[in-house]
Design a protein around this nucleic acid. Structure first.
Length: 804
RNA sequence: GCCGAAGUGGCGGAAUAGGCAGACGCGCGCGACUCAAAAUCGCGUUCCGUUCUCGGAGUGUGGGUUCGACUCCCACCUUCGGCACCA
């Protein structure tokens, strides 16, 4: 064991003995909930990405700690999921066993990082104590109508004879056998995320989240404001409603198009068209969704129903087509075809020789596009026309404004074993019956066999499946599906602060005090998944009376991705993975985490490079030199070196700012500067003052502490301190001491820097500066024979003389 | 196709309420120490020219606004990400 690793172990042991990082609930008023996204214990150990996420968030948390916050930074495991199950099928090792082993290993690795973490709050989603309450939350959502069942297409591998999760489908093929995946309709469980679609969009603006992430969610939810328009089919005494965002193009409608699955299809198809329509619809159903949506703008096909609808305003007869490009799940499943102003309608119209009518265009003298061929609305700009036509429709009761969303409900059932069992019982007499709350948890059985025969292990487990109906006691069967692991992770941050609660998911009063999470750090790949699901669950629980807040994560930051040295994503198959352990064992935790800090912009990430460790190793070496063999001096008086003191205050200011902004690379750069300056001061000898130097060293260690906690403790102890440096307060800078008695100004002539001028800091106001500069010997040569047009003074920075 | 982000030395990356571009490092070069090497320390390091002190160019490309633009505006190119028949 080398020196650095000894230091790691020494201080980790001491922190534990002193219970230094125990979360103190008495100080809850000063709480700061710092949440790095919990880890997924797949067959892998901690990888470099975990270090980047946890190690660097810990820097921020430690700064906040030293600033006096009661930091709550818990760790846990997102332990259910597919990889463990696939591993079991391959090796016969039970997912519980492999997962538990992985967790044990990862916990050791995490502890070796030396994070601020109170391990009493650890949780794991695959433990009964946790999933019991995942099941309870499911039941509460079910009671509230926010969890429901409906038939839905799922991914089906015809070769493996099994349902696949979305993650198991890669480019339309089965991950395991490469067969083309088809769709199969099965009865599935959903969470009604759409019940919160409006709020999920609207509340985004109050969150301190990256704009890109907000944008992705906004787009994912996809709100469109538009108008519903009614078209009548007089012959059949039917009415068809369409949704459009372009009601201004209403006069350009030349046909109606409806989804093949639309319930009115059979009715609209006239007898002589029935057969063809039936064939078309059947064929459309056969097509996988993938085929149907092939390419950017797939082939538009369709078939005429024989029926005509009447244009609400012009009473024109419009043919009604069944088409493959209209989706049943969005809007009304019927579209008004405007080939003049919609690319898809245009493609379709060309193929089926339907008329194309332009209703917006340039109109002679007017520059902007206006309505044409639109009766009394001609000449209006599209924006006005939208309003006028909508009004007209509303007046005649032919339509009205409406809003549609792209968001679909969240399909939460998975036909897999290694997940939270869905607490529902199917009784032949009573139907779907929820498991009574006092019978939770529905325990996931261990004695199942992992034979890849296309059936979920749970289905084959008789002792699990057969049960009596809670209502009528008749023999019944359990739901064999389990919950999507994203359900487990959608509420874990609510469980952390009260992870030992045996009677309820969490104590409401406590959670309302502890949350929302103050700072969440997790990958941007979760933008439209985890971050959205967690928001939905929070809002649902709020409305169920559990919470008094509706947004779980006040601030959010995404760490970047660390790539292999080849610039490619790290993967075992490419052989470009970099193991953190080898560095930690050789150089210690602090050097490794500082290398990660210094080598990348935190939000960007990038390719790993050996050089990062080298530069930090050297830095640490130089730093340690500062503390050795202080030149002897008897003076007990503190003699301040003004220049060095100014640097100290600037570094304090910058390091604080940089850590707060997650710019750890800049924070280290600042410390390097201070380190160099201290080294020079020490080496210079003559004016060396020991008390002053020790004062600076003390500040240096305090500033270093969040970045390199073990090292800082060690250096702190060499300064003869008994207590942990984390009992110290974060240093404050003094704005008055940032400034030197002389300030260097840049002198520009016509905007180009020509000279540097040192001026006494007492020369401050514009007139004085201008006067001194123009009189300066250094400036005179530039002025010869020229006329000064203008002098621009940027305080304490720059003077620009504009000459003619 | 639509939406978004990013383009700065050989490399990682600094600097944006418009004010000295390239901080801090890696690498490289030269020097010191050494029999030698490694390690370490010192100096140099955007490019071109140079008389060694300057001059010119320079933050993807081309324009613009301004005393002054990596930063703001317009157009374009490249890369990456999100959505993708959402009416």
């Amino acid at each position: 064991m080398n020196y650095s690793v000894k230091i790691d172990k020494k201080w980790q042991k001491r922190w534990e003995e002193q219970s230094l990082y125990k979360f103190n609930k008495d100080r809850i008023a000063k709480k700061l909930y710092c949440l790095p996204m919990f880890s997924y214990p797949s067959a892998d150990k901690l990888h470099i990405g975990h270090w980047f996420n946890y190690g660097l968030m810990d820097v921020w948390s430690r700064l906040k700690w030293m600033q006096g916050y009661e930091v709550f930074q818990p760790m846990g495991f997102d332990a259910f999921g597919l990889p463990a199950e696939n591993y079991a099928i391959k090796t016969g090792i039970h997912p519980r066993l492999s997962t538990m082993q992985n967790i044990d290993f990862m916990r050791k690795q995490l502890k070796a990082m030396g994070l601020i973490c109170d391990w009493d709050y650890e949780l794991s989603t695959c433990s009964k104590e946790y999933y019991r309450f995942t099941q309870l939350l499911f039941l509460k959502l079910y009671e509230a109508g926010l969890a429901y069942q409906k038939e839905a297409p799922v991914n089906w591998c015809p070769s493996c004879q099994t349902v696949l999760a979305n993650e198991q489908v890669t480019e339309g093929s089965c991950e395991r056998c490469q067969s083309t995946v088809t769709k199969k309709n099965l009865r599935q469980w959903f969470f009604k995320t759409t019940a919160y679609q409006a709020e999920l969009v609207d509340c985004l603006k109050e969150l301190d989240w990256p704009n890109e992430t907000k944008r992705i969610q906004t787009h994912w939810i996809g709100r469109s404001e538009g108008v519903y328009v009614k078209f009548s089919v007089p012959k059949l005494q039917q009415e068809l409603t369409v949704f459009t965002t372009r009601v201004d193009t209403l006069y350009g409608v030349t046909f109606l198009a409806m989804a093949p699955e639309h319930p009115l299809v059979a009715q609209l198809a006239l007898p002589e068209y029935q057969e063809q329509v039936k064939q078309y619809v059947e064929a459309a159903k056969e097509q996988s969704e993938r085929e149907r949506m092939a390419g950017a703008l797939g082939d538009k096909t369709g078939i005429f129903t024989g029926s005509y609808a009447e244009h609400p305003l012009t009473k024109e007869q419009l043919p009604i087509y069944i088409t493959n490009y209209v989706l049943l799940g969005y809007g009304t499943g019927i579209v008004m075809g405007v080939p003049g102003h919609d690319q898809r309608d245009a493609l379709f119209a060309k193929q089926y020789k339907l008329p194309i009518k332009k209703v917006v265009g340039e109109n002679g003298e007017q520059e902007r596009e206006v309505l044409i061929n639109s009766a009394e609305f001609n000449g209006l700009q599209p924006k006005e026309a939208k309003q006028h036509i909508a009004q007209e429709l509303a007046q005649r009761q032919l339509g009205g404004p409406g809003t549609e969303y792209r968001l679909r409900d969240w399909l939460v059932s998975r036909q897999r074993y290694w997940g939270t069992p869905i607490p529902i019982i199917y009784c032949p007499a009573c139907g779907a019956v929820p498991v009574p709350e006092d019978e939770l948890p529905v325990v996931l059985p261990d004695d199942v066999s992992f034979t890849p025969d296309g059936e979920s292990p749970l289905k084959k487990c008789q002792t699990f499946m057969s049960v009596n109906c809670p209502k009528c006691n008749a023999s019944a069967t359990r739901e064999a599906d389990t919950l999507d692991t994203f359900v487990d992770s959608a509420w874990y941050f609510l469980r952390y602060p009260d992870n030992k609660n045996n009677s309820e998911p969490f104590d409401q009063k406590l959670i309302n005090e502890m949350l929302p999470v103050d700072m969440y750090v997790g990958g941007r790949e979760h933008a439209a998944m985890h971050f959205l699901y967690a928001r939905f669950i929070t809002k649902a629980l709020r409305d169920l009376g559990y919470l008094n807040f509706g947004e779980p994560f006040r601030s959010l930051i995404h760490q970047g991705v660390i790539l292999g040295t080849d610039g490619q994503k790290m993967s075992k198959s490419k052989g470009n993975t970099v193991s953190p352990d080898q560095y930690v064992e050789k150089y210690g935790a602090d050097v490794f985490r500082m290398a990660l800090m210094f080598g990348f912009a935190f939000r960007e990430g990038g390719a790993w490079d050996e050089g990062f460790v080298r530069s930090i190793t050297r830095f640490v070496g130089r730093m340690e030199q500062l503390f050795c063999e202080l030149p002897g001096q008897t003076s007990s008086e503190t003699i301040v070196n003004q220049k060095l003191d100014a640097l100290r205050h600037r570094v304090i200011q910058k390091v604080t700012q940089m850590i707060e902004r997650f710019q750890f690379n800049n924070a280290i750069a600042q410390l390097m500067e201070l380190c160099t300056a201290l080294g020079n001061y020490k080496a210079a000898g003559a004016n060396f003052n020991k008390p002053f130097y020790r004062e600076l060293l003390a500040d240096f260690v305090r500033l270093l502490a969040p970045l390199a906690p073990h090292l800082a403790e060690e250096l702190w102890s060499t300064l003869e301190h008994e207590n942990s440096v984390f009992k110290e307060q974060w240093p404050n800078y003094d704005p008055k001491k940032l400034e030197l008695s002389e300030i260097e100004w840049a002198l520009q002539i016509n905007g180009v820097v020509r000279q540097k001028l040192l001026l006494d800091s007492s020369i401050a106001n514009k007139e004085d500066v201008e006067q001194v500069v123009l009189a300066s010997e250094k400036v005179k040569p530039y002025l010869a024979g020229k006329q000064v047009l203008k002098v621009i003074v940027v305080p304490k920075k720059l003077v620009n003389i504009v000459l003619k």
